[in-house]
Simulated scan of single mutants.
Amino acid sequence: QHVGQSLIPSLLTDFVWNLLMKLSKTNHKTASEAASMLKLTLEYHADKVTMVSKIVDTIYKKLRGNSTHIMNHAMLRVVTLLTRTSPKKVIFQLMDYPVPADNTLILMWHAAGSEVSVAPHVLKTFLLILKGKPGETQDSSTGGRRLSLDATNMMPVAASQALCTLLPLSSYRKAVAQFFPQLLMALMLQVFYSSELRLTTKDKPFFARDALRILLKCSGLQEVDTALQNMDCWSQFSEVLFHHRRVHFVAKALSNYRFPQFPETLHYLYKLSVEGPRRSEDSVITAIFLTEVSSIDCAQLGSHSL
């Protein structure tokens, strides 16, 4: 703790880096002492650490190798502590690997999302990533966007898979309720984008759809998920030509079940419509949802909740 107070950020980062390297030493005592010092240092001074992305990347590579139990536990704890002070840097780095994620990456997701206090910041970062369109890059010659699977902008797909893992965690219950409208619309759009992507990529998992279903279940809307399942809606989401119709089904099902998140969702939809969507397809999906959700009889909703 005292060492962390006296060192400037660059020197503290070097100190943390050296301790991190010692975790892979075969000497059990050396590795244990390094783990203890690393944990103590980051508990109090993680905010002074620079090169967070590089540290997270190194941890990923080392965990994929032949790591010991001490090394595994200590490195995952480092991810947790760095997420406290630098959630955006940690999450963006964790999204920058091939999809679907391997078991090592999923372990790191759990480590990053293990604390209630950071859950809102983690979800905000995911929502930022979900504004992107998979496979879309900036065309340097025209300044416009173009679809290119070779460019591998797959962060939104990785974020959708991560949400499948993190949304059910008890540490995320409060944050999921807080960001339900934003997550709902972000995932609806990602389902559409992923449907487009599936036309040119075979046998890809449909993480956006799965995350949307998990969101409904985690938000007490199991009946909505079941109703859509009975309508065979989920399996048909991959057919991009019928996607707008499926969007209507989801909005209709939510309206029929008088979902408790209605006021916040309606407010968010109005906000989206006023601000203007980033893409033309976004505006269509937002309009479908807004039209259906705004038709709910608010008085009836109030009496139902009573």
Rank of each mutant, 00 (worst) to 15 (best):
Q182R: 11
G276D: 04
G220C: 07
V274W: 08
K88E: 08
K217T: 13
D225Y: 10
C164R: 03
Q229S: 15
A111Q: 02
S10D: 15
T291E: 14
S148I: 03
T80W: 02
V116M: 11
V99R: 00
S280I: 07
L163I: 03
A34S: 15
H243N: 15
I106G: 02
Y44Q: 14
Q5W: 15
S160M: 08
R209M: 06
S171R: 13
D203T: 06
L63R: 01
W234Q: 12
H69S: 04
H121Y: 13
H73Q: 08
R145W: 13
L130N: 05
I8Y: 15
L272H: 04
V79T: 06
R245M: 15
T80C: 12
Q182N: 11
F249E: 15
P87F: 02
T142G: 02
Q222H: 11
L94P: 06
E223H: 08
P100S: 07
D47K: 07
M21A: 15
Q236H: 12
Q182M: 08
V3E: 10
K25Y: 11
S280C: 02
H248K: 15
Y60F: 06
P263Y: 12
T137P: 04
A34M: 08
A211E: 04
V52S: 08
S160I: 05
F92Y: 10
E275F: 01
Y270R: 15
H244I: 09
N66V: 00
I285P: 04
T142R: 07
C218F: 01
G135A: 03
R77P: 03
L228M: 05
H267Y: 14
D282I: 01
W109I: 04
Q178P: 06
G144D: 12
R279L: 10
D210R: 05
T13H: 11
Y193K: 01
A251M: 05
T226G: 05
N18T: 10
Q1A: 14
F126H: 01
